[in-house]
């Protein structure tokens, strides 16, 4: 047995022990796509809830590329990425939605969109009163892009403005796919 094989076979399986499945991911992606990964020097300050969750309106924002089947598809083929975002009605169901993303395994999310975009679980929590409500729309975009500065100017600022000014969200669940 080769030395590398011995190391592999003796290492604890992260699926069995509950540790990070793909360690070194930040460096691996940054090496493959230089400059594409963001590293911040200081923490984003913590905003606090002004009201209990049961009285707060929540939005969902994800890089998973989920959208209505009836909307124009996001561009999964552009080499620099698609710097647009989609509004997804928060009352949507699995059968209304489709994923346009190539950068993560979608097999399970194609069977049940809640695996990556828990829209129906949030609808249930809102109906139960665990949340004060949902914004009319949730937000989705393709996480893959090769220009972080342009991404911040376009997608991030666009979603932030929409969430505050149009949707009147009071808190947000972020699901980076």
């Amino acid at each position: 047995m080769m030395e590398a094989d011995k190391r592999t076979s003796s290492a604890a399986d992260p699926r069995e022990v509950g540790t990070q499945l793909r360690p070194g991911l930040w460096h691996a992606i940054n090496e493959r796509y230089p400059g594409s990964m963001i590293r911040k020097e200081s923490f984003v300050p913590q905003a606090r809830l002004r009201k209990p969750l049961g009285a707060s309106r929540l939005t969902l924002i994800s890089s998973c590329g989920v959208q209505l089947k009836t909307d124009q598809p996001l561009d999964v083929c552009h080499p620099f990425g698609d710097f647009r975002f989609q509004r997804v009605p928060s009352g949507g169901k699995h059968d209304d939605l489709i994923i346009h993303q190539l950068k993560y395994p979608r097999d399970d999310a194609d069977l049940d969109i809640n695996v990556i975009f828990p829209i129906e679980r949030l609808q249930e929590l809102s109906e139960e009163g665990r949340l004060g409500g949902l914004t009319p729309n949730f937000f989705s975009f393709i996480g893959y892009n090769m220009d972080p500065e342009k991404f911040e100017r376009t997608v991030a600022e666009g979603i932030a403005n929409a969430v505050v000014e149009e949707e009147r969200a009071e808190c947000a669940l972020l699901a980076p796919a």
């Binding site: 911040k40 505050v164 808190c171 947000a172 972020l174 980076p176």
Partner: peptide, 16 residues
């Protein structure tokens, strides 16, 4: 606005 992320890539989340 208060936000919370759900992540499967701890070091990426730590970096940002």
């Amino acid at each position: 606005m208060p936000t919370v992320s759900v992540t499967v890539a701890r070091e990426v989340t730590e970096a940002i």
